[in-house]
Simulated scan of single mutants.
Amino acid sequence: MTIVSTNNAEHYVWGDNCDGWHLLKNPSLHVIQESVPPGRSEQRHTHSVAQQFFFILTGHAIMELEGQDYPLSAGEGIHIAAGKPHQFKNPYNDPVEFLVISNPTTRGDRNDLA
């Protein structure tokens, strides 16, 4: 058994200088920690099969889900059901750190939207 942290997890960069760490990579359960700098966001998209839960560790963010904005603060989370259009945004002045828990993995299950 290995203890996992952002110090030893597989790191990746996505979007415009956003960071991610694969804390658990399993076909049936995927857990990542991500950091989004101020003023950045991901592209609006859906997942055909995977459901996700976003949980804010530090900072503030907005989750746009099916055209409605949901403000989130540290200690709060939101469930995204499979097939629902969504976009994670950080319009604030500080970075946001959060967990994304996906079941099953989102590998090959992302459909970007305009």
Rank of each mutant, 00 (worst) to 15 (best):
N90L: 04
H79C: 11
S28L: 13
W21T: 04
K89V: 01
I101Q: 04
E64H: 12
Q52I: 00
E34V: 08
N111Q: 14
R44V: 04
S28A: 09
H79E: 11
Q33H: 08
V36I: 14
M63D: 00
A114D: 15
K89G: 05
P27C: 06
G39E: 07
P85F: 09
W14P: 01
L29I: 14
V13Y: 09
I3W: 06
N103M: 13
F88K: 05
N93W: 07
F55S: 12
I80C: 13
I3N: 02
N103E: 03
A9D: 10
V36M: 14
V96F: 14
C18H: 02
V49K: 08
L65P: 09
I56M: 00
I78A: 05
G83K: 03
E10A: 07
F88A: 04
E66T: 11
V4Q: 03
N93E: 12
K89R: 14
D69L: 12
V13P: 05
H30E: 14
N90P: 07
L113C: 11
F53K: 04
I101C: 12
G83E: 02
F54Y: 15
R44C: 12
G77C: 07
S102L: 02
T106N: 13
L99F: 15
V13I: 11
H30G: 04
L72T: 05
W14E: 11
D69T: 15
Q52C: 03
Y92W: 09
H86Y: 11
H86V: 02
C18G: 09
P91F: 11
L72I: 08
S5Y: 02
L113N: 08
S5D: 02
S35I: 15
Q51P: 03
H22P: 09
L24I: 15
H79A: 15
N26H: 12
F88R: 01
Q43P: 01
A50T: 00
Y92D: 06
K84V: 13
Q52V: 00
R107S: 11
H30S: 11
H22M: 13
G20Y: 00
L72H: 04
S28K: 07
